[in-house]
Design a binder for these strands. Sequence first.
DNA 1: TCCTTTTTGTTGTTTTGACAACAGATTTGT
DNA 2: ACAAATCTGTTGTCAAAACAACAAAAAGGA
Lengths: 218, 218
Amino acid sequence: MDYQFLSRTALFRGIQPEEIKTMLSCLTAERKSYEKGEMIYRAGDAAASLGVVLDGKVLIEHDDLWGNTTVLDSVLPGQIFAETYACTAGEPLMVNVEAAERSQILFLNVSRVLRSCTHACAFHGKLIRNLLALSAQKNLNLSRKIFYTASKSIRGRLTAYLSDQAVRSGSSSFTIPFNRQQLADYLNVDRSSLSAEIGKMQREGLLRVKKNLFEIMR
Amino acid sequence: MDYQFLSRTALFRGIQPEEIKTMLSCLTAERKSYEKGEMIYRAGDAAASLGVVLDGKVLIEHDDLWGNTTVLDSVLPGQIFAETYACTAGEPLMVNVEAAERSQILFLNVSRVLRSCTHACAFHGKLIRNLLALSAQKNLNLSRKIFYTASKSIRGRLTAYLSDQAVRSGSSSFTIPFNRQQLADYLNVDRSSLSAEIGKMQREGLLRVKKNLFEIMR
DNA sequence: TCCTTTTTGTTGTTTTGACAACAGATTTGT
DNA sequence: ACAAATCTGTTGTCAAAACAACAAAAAGGA
C-alpha cells in the first residue's frame, strides 16, 4: 500500500504515512480490485463504506426511468466516493458506481471511522475533520449548481454561472473548465441552444468568447 | 441559556446539558439578538461562525441579478445555518441570511470547533461527528433536488420526484410536504403548468391525486 | 354562517428552448 | 501534412412550457 500517496489525498491530508498505516489496520480497511465496467455499488444499495480510488477511474452514473444513463461525476485516484451515503446510515444510493477502467479501491467502514477511538489513533480526529471539509466542499458544489440552474432561461443560467466565475477568478476574463457540451450538461440545457445564446450575447456586446476563454463586457 | 434545549438539537445530540455548558465557554460561543428584517449575513460575506437558531426564525434568501428575491430555506429553532461556509474557510456566502422575526442566534466559531481540543472537552468529537452527519444529510437533500430537476420536462421531473417519494414511503400512496406552488418552486417549473400536467396524468390514469395525497397507479 | 383570502385547476396565447441536420472549425492520430 | 474524429456554431421546425387571466374550490376568520 502506498501510504505516501494516501497522505497526499484530501482525506488523509495532514496525517503521516506511518500513522496512516496504523490507522488502516485499526479501521480494518479493505482493498479491492475491479475490472473495467464492473459495478462497485448499485442504486438502491446501502453503502456502509466510503471508497478511496487508489488507481484507475470510477464513474458515478444515473439511470433514469427510461433507461438513459447519465454520467454525473468521475472519481480519480486520491478522490473518494459514496462518503455521503456512508455518513447517513441507511440511505440507499441514488446512483450507480462503476469502474471506468481496471481500478483499485480502498474501502473504509465509516461507522468505524466515526466511532471515537479510545486508544492510539491520535490522527483519527484529523480524518474526521478532513471528511467534514470534503463534505462541506461537495455541499458548496451542489449548491452552486442549483444556483446556476435556478433561472428558467438559458441566458439566466449562463449569466449566473459566468458572473460567479468572474467573481471567483477576480477578473472579468477567465477560462472555464468545460467544453460546450459539458457546460450545457452542467447548466441542464441543450448544447446547440447554448451555443446560439452565447452567439447572441456576443452580438449584443455582452460577452467576448474565444474557446473556453470568456470575457464579460460591462 | 437553555442547555436542555440545545441537547435536543441535531448539532448537540448525545451531549449532556452540563457538558454543553462547559463546551460553549471553551468554544467562546456568542449569543446575539436580531430584529425582524435584520440581516445576519450578506451574500459575499465570509462566515467564520455557524449559527444555531435559539428562538425566532431565519430565512436563507437569494437575490438574483435583476433584484428578485427567492427564499431558499427557512431555519427554525434548534436548526443551524451557514455551517457549510464556516467549514470551508474563505468561501463567500452565495445567500443572504435574514431574521424573519425577532430572533436569538448562538454563533459558534467553527475553527474552534474543528481545532482538536487537548483538554477537557470529551464531547468535542461528538460535536464534530454531529456536524458531519448534518452536512452529509444536507448533501443528500441537495443531490435529490438535482436529481428531480435533471429531466427537462415537467412530467419527467414530477415522476422522478413522485416515484422517489413512493419508494421512501414504502407505498404507492403517500402525502407530500408541499402545496402546489411549493412543489412547482422545488421542481423549478411554473405552477399552473404543473397543475395542468398533474391533471393530464390523472386523466391518463397514471395518478390519483387528492390535495397532497398522491397515488401512483401501475 | 357568510365573507374574505388563499389555493388550485383550466384555458388560450406567446415565448422559449429542445431537437435535428448540417457546415465549418479545431483537434487528434498517424 | 493528411485524414478522421470531435467540437462548435448556425438555422429552421415544432413541441413544451412559461405566462396571463380567470373561475372554481378550499380554507380561514369574524
